[in-house]
Design a protein around this nucleic acid. Sequence first.
DNA 1: AATTTTCAGTGAGAAAAATCACAAGGGAGA
DNA 2: TCTCCCTTGTGATTTTTCTCACTGAAAATT
Lengths: 208, 208
Amino acid sequence: MGSRPNIPDIVIGRLPIYLRALYRMIQEEKEYTSSQELGERLGISSAQIRKDLSHFGEFGKQGTGYNIKFLHEKIRQILQVDREWLIAVVGVGDLGHAIAHYRGFAPRGFHVAALFDSAPTKIGEQIGGLTVMPVSAMKDEIHRQKIQVAMLSVPAEHAQQVANELIGAGIRAILNYAPITLAVPPDVRVQYIDPVAHLQHMTYYLRS
Amino acid sequence: MGSRPNIPDIVIGRLPIYLRALYRMIQEEKEYTSSQELGERLGISSAQIRKDLSHFGEFGKQGTGYNIKFLHEKIRQILQVDREWLIAVVGVGDLGHAIAHYRGFAPRGFHVAALFDSAPTKIGEQIGGLTVMPVSAMKDEIHRQKIQVAMLSVPAEHAQQVANELIGAGIRAILNYAPITLAVPPDVRVQYIDPVAHLQHMTYYLRS
DNA sequence: AATTTTCAGTGAGAAAAATCACAAGGGAGA
DNA sequence: TCTCCCTTGTGATTTTTCTCACTGAAAATT
């Protein structure tokens, strides 16, 4: 896809939000939308949306707006979610279970392809059609299936160590559910999910 | 605690990150840290950390740095998590179950105090010491317990409607797990948890 | 056919956020 | 006490991000 230099990360981060809204519009069987309508739904200015999209091409038509399916597909291509990504889940406690059962990954480009845990009691357990494997088998299995993305749902104390092993096994993107900032080499991407951090962010504003 | 005007939201959003790191340091029985050390752990510049904290007061000492417990407590006060917040969870599918069982809320200031679902088969179910109640009982129960925060884990199609009911019941902060942007009045805070959006953000960069 | 409305894309400018770099305070050791 | 080393808090500056406002094109209306 040739040269795509220097697009701000904050712009990339908004594309999945646009995708999500477009997906809803497809379900609503809408055909066209405008930057203004999209912006109103998302609480984002229309100029912001137009400028974001302009980094990647010209997807709209003056007077008409954007064809929803077309724009949806274009953003999927940009984000590379017009294919399926395999995911390894490490740590199958309550959270890992919920992740393994979650039906929302598949329709948006992701497929949970392997489950790992270190607790001997959990090895062999069947979850959502997959068998929990020992962490010692992680590297081989990740290579065998060519898995590139991992979700980390182990306790905070073990997260860094497991992350190191994942990176050693070739993983280049980690979605970390443990409430700890990971140290990783610059070619590895990490994103964080910390519900408590979000809650704490909101309670700041709950002053009467 | 008087006037605290105009502090950028992006600064507020980093405070929970600092809190998380300080909490870890307390567990490691460290006593002092510096903006530089903290920054290295978090991948944030030391100047950024100092400037962020300077919005709220002077918490460090030249030559010494920050007393970890003291700074931790100060940030807890700023975020108002030096008390316990009660949370209502709406939607007890797999995700709602995982939330209800999650042990990570309590030590960081939050207590799941009520569970709601609309499916008659789920009403009455016991989860983590709580009984699932019907959505129709939501308003009364939220008032009775004076719950101010809610977590929304219902399907996307119902999220907006349930959010409306929550707001009608007096909820002022919503952590939304449904992959949809909610429309809410300006005095209601919403934060989003969408793992797939994070994954899609990362796959952008997975070009070889 | 002419006019009006709608809406994308974009350069210029404004606003916000991050970084720089330094003065000054505090501790440790000589 | 004096000197050296750390480290904070912060004004100044740079960088990044967002918004404004306009051009031009397409559609809708008269």
